[in-house]
Amino acid sequence: MTSLLDVQDLSVVFRTERGALTAVNSVSFDLAAGETLAIVGESGSGKSVTALSLLGLLGEAGRIAGGSIRFDGEDITRPGAGRLREIRGNQIAMIFQEPMSSLNPVLTIGEQVAEPLRLHKGLGRAEAMAAAGDLLERVAIPDARARLADYPHHFSGGMRQRVMIAMALACQPKLIIADEPTTALDVTVQAQILELLKSLTRDLNSAMILITHDLGVVARYADRVAVMYAGRIIESAPARDLFAAPRHPYTIGLMGSTPRLASGPKARLATIPGQPPDLAALPSGCAFAPRCPHARELCLSAPPPVETDAGGRRLACYGHG
């Protein structure tokens, strides 16, 4: 099997005042060209840290404590892998929730979109500006060329996210990581942005990691889904299989907790009691055990191993072992 991205047993540890905190714990997944993988889970489950670790953006306090990340066959976790910067700049692009924090408020939109084209593609000033205009047109910004001279604060949240997508597409990346790209946007604008991402990734045959807490977005856009809880992927499967028959008690609880547009009358939601654990004080067994209706003695002993079935579902739960 040739995967574009192959992550094996990845762990990320942060140094904190309260000691070492394992934000990502033995996470494995892979991704083929053109495929969209959704990573879902509640806040603090490790979704963003997983994404940042792929880009080598963990900052001062964080480090990859174990595992490997292979991109296009090359291990990009090895320190000194000289190509990492080049890969990051050219082949993997990232789109964040809040585009304003990635845009420079005192530069025009045109300058910011043109800049990487000059750097990475060696275009001249005028050429780069013309190419920037093309890119803004491709992401359907109305009156694109006229808006090159505008500053970010002249743009709505949805239009800024289009600019970020234009910048991400400039180098025709093989992988796009979108971390909650529409969480701050209204639902009609969210739909436009996700449709845009979908059609552009299809045109470029780019793979996408779509991080979201919205199961509706997952159902609509993902080929496969990985569910994270307390730093681990506790279940992953093709999207249809996961929704048709979730198997991990946490996945089942998450789906039961989600109000459905297509649901029946005023009924109670199935809920998960309690709240997610403190990562600095994880239980010794399965991290979900304190909230799990099926927890037994065995579950408290050690974290459950990940088992893969014939359909490509991976599950970390003793209950179904």
Partner: peptide, 21 residues
């Protein structure tokens, strides 16, 4: 515009109509 947590419904749905903000 609001996706439902159901891949079968989503696949059956035509693409989103509303443009602009």
């Amino acid at each position: 515009s609001a996706p439902s947590a159901d891949p079968a419904l989503e696949a059956a749905r035509s693409s989103v109509a509303l443009a602009g903000e």
